[in-house]
């Protein structure tokens, strides 16, 4: 029995001013699944990702991460299991050097020094950034920043990876490298993005979010073939399918 699943039931969230961002979202990710989360701006993607890691608390519904129900009490455990890669790497890389940043999570987990060093080396090697360890974080290129940001999360050995717009700010080459990396991961993955081509390359399954509700959930090619659905959700068919 795997603990690497993520199950969301009837998730609701309303902003303090009353606007509803999530109006009852339910889905389940199985172990090792890579799922694309697409939707126009304001569809609720970012809000949902914040809710999944307890950074904002939903006004209704449940989030179950491998058998642990998210609550104020279990939020630490949930955050250890779900690695969150933020949209802007500048926000995620807040420590002075790459090493410090990747070591941040493991140190907060209370690991010993040798364990932390091992985690850092492994995580950086995994994303091909081991030579960057001593560099100041603000002197990295966009692609390097993204790789290190992913390493900071990998170092915590999460079961589930959720990523907000991982391809933003990358040049085509950097994007290609990222896609290769994401395909190789064995984690349960939820990738929110506007880059439908990336979804096509990485995720066999896609969830379409529209105005706080799930508009479609299924095989990526099937979803992207439904022109009417994409049109209604203000999306565009990926160029990889327009042949």
């Amino acid at each position: 029995m795997s603990h690497h699943y993520l199950e969301v039931r009837d998730l609701r969230y309303a902003y303090p001013d009353g606007t509803e961002a999530l109006k009852g979202v339910s889905f389940r990710l199985e172990h090792g699944e890579a799922v694309g989360l697409v939707g126009a701006n304001g569809a609720g993607k970012s809000t949902m990702m914040l809710a999944l890691t307890g950074l904002i608390f939903a006004s209704g519904g449940t989030i179950d991460v491998g058998g642990t129900l998210l609550s104020k009490k279990t939020v630490g455990e949930v955050r250890r299991r779900i690695g969150f890669v933020f949209q802007d790497s500048e926000d995620q890389l807040f420590m002075p050097t790459v090493f410090d940043d990747v070591a941040f999570g493991p140190l907060n987990q209370g690991l010993s020094e040798p364990e932390v060093r091992e985690r850092v080396t492994d995580a950086l090697t995994r994303v091909g950034a081991e030579r960057l360890a001593d560099r100041p974080t603000y002197r990295l290129s966009g692609g390097e920043k993204r790789a290190v940001a992913i390493a900071t999360v990998l170092a915590m050995l999460p079961d589930v990876l959720i990523m907000d717009e991982p391809g933003s700010g990358l040049d085509p080459y950097g994007r290609r490298l990222l896609i290769g990396l994401l395909r190789d991961f064995r984690h349960t993955r939820l990738i929110a993005t506007h880059d439908l081509d990336m979804v096509l390359d990485v995720c066999p399954r896609t969830i379409v979010l529209h105005e706080g509700r799930i508009a479609a959930d299924g095989d990526t090619r099937t979803v992207f073939s439904d022109a009417a659905l994409l049109e209604r959700c203000r999306l565009e068919q990926p160029s990889g399918m327009r042949k």
Binding site: M95, D100, N108, V116, M156
Partner: peptide, 15 residues
């Protein structure tokens, strides 16, 4: 938020 997502508890730890 990024700090909290990686279990920040008010104490910055460095090696």
């Amino acid at each position: 938020r990024a700090m909290k997502a990686r279990l920040f508890d008010g104490e910055i730890r460095v090696l």
